Computed example of a mutant assay.
Amino acid sequence: MADFAEKIGEIECKTPWGCWYQTLEEVVAEVTLEPGTKAKEIKCKLSGKKLTTVVRGKEILNGTVPGNVVTDDFLWTVEDNKLLRIVITKSDRSGRDCWKSLLDGQYPADPQVYDNMEKKLTMERVQREDLPSESV
């Protein structure tokens, strides 16, 4: 069965470095890299609520995430040496925690994009609540 997010698509917030989007559980930032960029050329860290990302010595992200997160579940990967995907796990996975920006005061979703993000998370939450729990 296809994942619900795949069925309705992600609501992306475009940024100068790529985009970010969110699901009930996660916030994902996709940073477009110069082709050929290697993981060893990237420093990406989530410490408490502070996210920093440096690519080839150039700071891309530096700020505080607006929601509560699970720092132990922080993950980043380099795909095809041209895309950095940063996955931040929300502590509140109920779908009621819709982030207005990736970092406090930085990369905000415009009102229409934010409205669409909220609608998507609400639909996702309603669908999840309506699913019968699987018996073991």
Rank of each mutant, 00 (worst) to 15 (best):
K43Y: 07
C44W: 02
R96Y: 00
P66S: 02
D92Y: 08
K45Q: 13
D92E: 07
D73H: 12
L61N: 04
G95Q: 07
G48K: 12
V28T: 13
V28H: 05
G95S: 09
K100D: 13
N81G: 04
G95M: 07
F74R: 08
E34N: 12
A29S: 13
V70P: 01
V28G: 00
A39C: 01
G95Y: 07
K82A: 15
G63C: 08
A39L: 06
D92V: 09
T64F: 06
R96S: 13
D72C: 00
D72I: 00
T52Y: 03
K45D: 13
K82L: 00
K49P: 00
D97A: 14
T71F: 00
D92P: 07
L33F: 06
V54S: 10
S94G: 14
V28M: 10
G48M: 06
V54P: 02
V55L: 10
R93Y: 00
R85T: 15
V55G: 05
F74K: 02
L33N: 02
L51Q: 10
S101C: 14
V54F: 02
V65S: 05
L46N: 06
W99C: 05
K82S: 13
E59L: 07
R56H: 03
W76R: 01
V70K: 13
L83M: 15
G48H: 01
R56N: 15
R56Y: 00
S47I: 06
T77H: 01
I88W: 07
V65Q: 05
G95D: 10
K50Y: 11
L46S: 05
C98F: 03
V28Q: 10
N68I: 01
K82I: 02
S91L: 10
K49I: 06
K43F: 09
T52K: 15
E79L: 11
K90V: 08
I60T: 13
R85Q: 13
D80L: 06
S94W: 07
L51T: 05
V70E: 13
L61G: 05
L83I: 09
L75A: 11
K43C: 03
P66A: 00
E79R: 11
L83A: 03
I60H: 04
N62E: 12
K50H: 13
N62Y: 07
L46G: 03
L84Y: 04
L46Y: 06
D97W: 11
N62M: 01
N68E: 14
S101N: 11
I42V: 15
R85P: 00
A39S: 10
A29Q: 02
L83W: 04
T71I: 12
G63M: 12
V87T: 15
G67V: 11
E41T: 03
K38A: 12
P66F: 02
E59D: 02
K90R: 14
A29W: 04
N62L: 06
K82F: 00
R93S: 09
V31G: 03
K82D: 12
D80R: 14
G48T: 10
I42E: 03
L51C: 12
K38M: 12
S91T: 15
S91R: 14
A39I: 04
K50C: 03
I42P: 01
V87H: 06
F74Y: 12
E41G: 02
L51Y: 10
V65T: 07
D73K: 15
K49F: 04
